[in-house]
Simulated scan of single mutants.
Amino acid sequence: MAEVIPFTGHYRHDHREPHGCFDGHLHIIDPRFPLIDNQGYRPAPFTVENYQKATRGLDIRGGAIVSGSFQGTDQSYLLAALEALGGDFVGVTQLPDDISDARLLELDEAGVRAIRFNLRRGGRQDIGAMIRQARRVFDVVGWHCEIYADARHLAPHLTLLRALPAMVIDHLGLSQEGLPTLLALVEAGARVKATGFGRVSLDVPATLAAIADINPHALIFGTDLPGTRAPRPFREGDIELLHNTLGDTNAMLALHDNAVALYRPRGSDSVA
């Protein structure tokens, strides 16, 4: 497992607001539930308790638990984590093609708010089928879709993707080569995870600034903990980078308000 460095001190500048941070991208890896080897990789455990310890001092007021490639379409771990973490947390899941409307409604009631497509780690490559499933899920339960891919590989599908009703791109689109495609999607209404700064091959401050210049409501902060397969995991300076790049007002949109508006956590009335 990548090294996780808990934040137990204070930011160099006191940027924290009363409503805290919403962690828009985290993984819970609970060995009590099924795990799948993906490309020869199986992650080390990272339980709810591990997550709470790793984020001690960050003033986390909710978050999005994201299903990884190594969890397939299993919902059992996700439902257990949502129950443990409470109503300010939501789920982002992977779904089988044959899932019923009734099951979608059950997951929505439990706090799941998005479907994820992992194009980066050997996942679905049929863009047409992906888009059909994303549209169906949006029509039934109003969820957006989240796409983990190098944005440069999305360029041939730009017209189709622009037509999606609601979409989020993970980890700043990963590459400098994908930046034009990423910004074109932002112009079409896509949101972008301000996450995984240790994963990307691009100028993070310049990319954050370019996205915020188009739409300051597009950025969604997340720790990406535990940082599986990342060259370096989240660190406290990533939050400071948001403030220094975006200014405090837009940074707090990215750190909290944008995510709450997008994910609609069950406890959001008490968070916002």
Rank of each mutant, 00 (worst) to 15 (best):
H144D: 04
L179Y: 08
S67Q: 11
Y41P: 00
V66Y: 01
T47I: 05
G63W: 05
I239G: 00
L172F: 15
V192F: 02
A134Y: 13
A209M: 10
V48W: 04
R135K: 15
L172T: 13
A261D: 10
A134C: 12
R16C: 07
L208Y: 10
T8A: 09
E236M: 07
G247W: 07
G9D: 05
P265I: 11
S175K: 09
Y11M: 10
E17L: 13
N50D: 15
D150Y: 11
L242I: 05
H171A: 11
L105G: 02
D98T: 14
G86V: 10
R42W: 07
R136W: 14
I147R: 09
T207C: 14
N258G: 06
L225Q: 02
D126H: 14
Q39K: 04
L154I: 03
G247Q: 05
R120Y: 14
L104Q: 04
A190T: 03
I239E: 01
S67R: 04
G142D: 09
G196T: 07
R199S: 13
G227W: 06
I29A: 00
Q75V: 08
L105Q: 14
P205S: 15
G189I: 03
R116V: 03
L26A: 02
Q94L: 13
Q133N: 12
R235L: 05
A149Y: 12
F117G: 01
Q52V: 08
P43Q: 05
I65M: 01
A151Q: 05
H25R: 02
H27K: 00
I214G: 09
F89V: 12
D98F: 13
T47L: 08
L58Y: 10
R124C: 11
H243V: 11
